[in-house]
Design a binder for these strands. Structure first.
Lengths: 223, 223
DNA sequence: TGTACATCAGTGAACGCGCGTTCACTGATGTAC
DNA sequence: TGTACATCAGTGAACGCGCGTTCACTGATGTAC
């Protein structure tokens, strides 16, 4: 770990970052399918083959962008949560931070929550980062007194909900856990509809609608 | 409108259909961005330039596929509704038919409810077909006694909801209209999460969860 | 009904373009003694 | 500290490929008189 060795490694880390940044920039213009290694190299003033010192293939670069995007939106959600105080407010803060990140990075959002890329198989690396926003929501419910909600839950769903209860470590019945997944679905459903233009003609701009949804879903899960 | 003229026109209509069918087939393999006129022509045993007798450009073909997809999922939803009887059952039938169509045509679904295609601008033709599923849900609520739901609604949202009330011709307050849009969001949010793999590790397979959601959202809108 | 003309479908070549990836190479940076 | 060697970053040419779109054309189908 001499100084010189660190210098080379630093240069490497920096260029890797620059490549990803440029790729993200292009993502915004041409989408995931249109992302081209040659174009990225060109913009960076390199020859296209040079990128292969940093990423073994185009797919691997895409995977890294996907993982980065999941982590970025997850971190935005986590950091919006003060970790204490009124649970409703924490819940709302997370909803808004998630949407704000998505609106600030629409193409990265589309990369992770839009149509799957044909021929691209998400590797295992994406599983944990993909759960961060959901976990941030769950964290608000733990150590919080929830309004108990009952209701008939079909056996298959009950089993899935109970398995989740164990994994997540929250104290809540199957109906509440199911509603939590509905809330999570609602969060991303609303963001996607907003970003992808489906609210044009109904609740566009969607700000007030989104805030309303966040509140109603908080009530809905018993918060 | 002589017999001969009809023959030529028929041939034209048939080939137009065959081109779209083949394009849909390829959509399933390579996605919207990968869809290639040359490949479609090749598969049909034609020369690529011949397609230009039927579609002025690749974009126009894509637009037609999009409109067709909206109409197909809309028709599936409409036809699932018996038009009379228990409103809850009608509501559930529409939810399931919509999901079933999406599962049977995942790539067409992704074409219309997935990431927007960069560089592609949806023309006006898509607006009406895009609303058919939502309208089918609304139709269940009209001429139906709804449980009245009140709640504070922010002024901007109230205005949007009231404008919608007029367009849709339903008798319901702003809270109910807002909840209807939440239900619509939930429907497609759940279908997208299911199809795009986000439920893996939680409620996958999502059948029971989806049925549960449909029921809870029916209650939620006051049905 | 028959003929001259107009319309249309489909061909085949071409234009100009961009892509991912491989490979042998040069020259700079880092390592071992 | 100095030198011989190994590692690594980046080059430039090449492979083999596919794309959308245009255009002048041939030959078949349909129309008007």
């Amino acid at each position: 770990m001499t100084a010189t060795r660190t210098a080379r490694e630093r240069a490497r880390a920096e260029l890797t970052q620059e490549i990803k940044d440029e790729a993200r920039r292009q993502l915004a213009e041409v989408g995931a399918h249109g992302l081209s290694l040659r174009a990225v190299a060109r913009e960076l003033g390199m020859v296209s083959s040079a990128l292969y010192r940093y990423f073994p293939s185009r797919d691997r670069l895409l995977t890294d962008l996907i993982v980065d995007a999941y982590n970025a939106i997850g971190e935005a959600a986590e950091q919006a949560d003060p970790g204490e105080g009124e649970p409703r407010e924490r819940w709302l803060a997370i909803w808004h931070a998630t949407r704000d990140w998505a609106r600030a990075h629409p193409h990265e959002y589309a990369l992770i929550y839009g149509s799957p890329i044909p021929g691209y198989e998400a590797p295992q690396d994406t599983v944990v980062p993909a759960g961060r926003v959901a976990l941030a929501l769950v964290k608000v419910l733990t150590h919080t007194e929830l309004r108990a909600i009952d209701g008939p839950v079909a056996p298959e769903l009950r089993a899935q909900a109970e398995a989740l209860t164990k994994v997540l470590g929250i104290i809540a019945g199957p109906e509440t856990v199911t509603r939590l997944i509905m809330a999570w679905t609602q969060l991303f459903g609303a963001i996607s509809f907003d970003l992808f233009g489906q609210y044009v003609g109904s609740v566009d701009p969607a700000d007030a609608f989104f805030t309303h949804s966040a509140t109603r879903m908080a009530e809905f899960v018993g918060l």
